[in-house]
Design a protein around this nucleic acid. Structure first.
Lengths: 194, 194
DNA sequence: GCCTATCGTTCCATAAACGGAACGCCAGGG
DNA sequence: CCCTGGCGTTCCGTTTATGGAACGATAGGC
């Protein structure tokens, strides 16, 4: 019986809310609170949450909701990521020719934008499948020269230049010459309700 | 003793779990799931959570726990902060017409690059003094239309366009029309060796 | 000594997040 | 046509996160 539980598959991704994660988040909150000279009662009052909730969170015996986390992070003046995400490396997508590290995701109303740090290795071409309609990619090259864009109409982008294209069809990334291309890639997604 | 409710103090921080935040997170999850070609049922199974939970989350009718968020972020391969529009602790520079938030600083050999998230408010023009020689700015506009660049030769940049200029002289930023401009700004500095 | 204030923890009823199951819907195959 | 399988949503009983209140502990004022 080679059943693989969902939990096992999750472990493969390395992201689970464990007792250790809970305790770590709790200790971090307690430390940040201490640095600001706030008592538990005071922080709970300011954040508009119960003392019991904060106490349980700090001692790692609770599994807080997004609402609670927002309230605490807001009062401590830190991003949520500082409370939750272990200092582990950002997820990096490795392709045949491209390494992309997701640096930031921001949302403005009906649009979300992802920022990637991109490295294109020479000697290979990477083709990405179409994204959803309305998705646009913006590339700014810091070093090297790249050939990027829709497979039907690629563009050559040299150091210090930018390019953008609608990525609702297959598109490719390649480095020209034998130096890797360093670039930033912004991907704009309309948040369609579909 | 000036009484201020906890909710008011939180609003001042601007960090609360609102219906909008919930809906936004839901749409984002749905989009990421779609991009990976996963059905709701399949993602729920892999993440080890109930379909009802995921459905409710995607439609913004739930206030998920850290455990649930971890499971989903792990399966989607994104940092947890990407799902919750993270309150930014990044330093923000506020000017007369421009708000600039420093998102990232890269260093590649002899060049350092700063990435800013830029908002240009309409109705004002902001002039920045010259930077050091060799500094180049790259602007990508996501919404609105901007007039930017050296005061002697400004450029008009509409939604979805880019512009770049050498900023070794005074340069200006302004929004055209009455909607704010949302953009990303990359500033490349040669590391002056003196 | 007492009284009060505040600290962090614990108790507890309520609200709500959870997952399993059943639902209606739609596309494909027999 | 019916039947099956997968889809996303809704229903619903169970689990649990929540905040108010009570608790013991500690510190300072009188």
């Amino acid at each position: 019986m080679v059943e693989r539980s969902a939990a096992e598959e999750q472990d493969a991704q390395g992201n689970r809310w464990t007792a250790e994660a809970a305790a770590g988040t709790g200790l971090l909150i307690r430390r940040l609170r201490g640095e600001r000279g706030l008592s538990l009662s005071e922080l709970a009052r300011r954040a508009g949450i119960g003392k019991a909730t904060l106490s349980g969170l700090e001692t790692g015996t609770r599994n807080p909701t997004a609402e609670t986390l927002y309230a605490i992070a807001g009062q401590l003046g830190v991003p949520l990521a500082a409370l939750l995400s272990a200092p582990e490396a950002a997820p990096t997508v490795e392709g045949e020719a491209v390494s992309a590290k997701l640096l930031e995701v921001f949302r403005d109303g009906a649009v979300s934008t992802e920022l990637y740090r991109l490295t294109i290795r020479p000697g290979a071409v990477q083709v990405s499948p179409a994204h959803a309609p309305g998705v646009v990619e913006y590339l700014t090259v810091f070093s090297g020269t790249a050939r990027v864009g829709p497979v039907a109409a690629p563009q050559v982008v040299a150091t210090g230049e930018h390019a953008s294209w609608v990525s609702d069809g297959p598109h490719s990334y390649a480095a020209i010459g034998d130096v890797p291309v360093e670039a930033s890639l912004l991907i704009r997604h309309p948040l369609t309700t579909g």
